[in-house]
């Protein structure tokens, strides 16, 4: 028989925080994936909300595209507030 599909699991730990990827698991359908995620990833109060996403539906960037994707952010240091000097006399900004 076929294997159960793989699901990626995301947990929101407290109100106000975003869901965060915690791992993956196998389950026959979405409902069982939620049930399994509860048992596998929230045995110690880790979460208040669970998302499950079929792993096959995730599109990931390729490591080979790392430069094309992320290098442009590296050479725009003026995007960071620390690029701009603040005069001593101006205390808070």
């Amino acid at each position: 028989m076929k294997e159960w599909p793989l699901w990626e699991v995301f947990i929101r730990s407290q109100h106000g925080l975003a869901h965060k990827h915690v791992g993956s698991l196998h389950a026959p359908d979405a409902e069982m994936a939620i049930n399994n995620a509860r048992d596998v990833y929230t045995r110690r109060n880790e979460g208040l909300s669970i998302w499950v996403v079929p792993a096959a539906e995730v599109t990931a960037s390729s490591p080979a595209d790392k430069e094309a994707l992320f290098e442009p952010a590296n050479n725009k240091i003026y995007r960071h507030p620390t690029f701009f000097p603040v005069p001593e006399e101006v205390k808070h900004m």
């Binding site: 028989m1 159960w4 026959p28 359908d29």
Partner: peptide, 16 residues
């Protein structure tokens, strides 16, 4: 457990 694993998958396929 084989019949159970297969049954859950068959049920999921039927539902979808």
């Amino acid at each position: 457990g084989e019949w159970f694993r297969d049954a859950l998958l068959a049920h999921a396929e039927k539902k979808s």
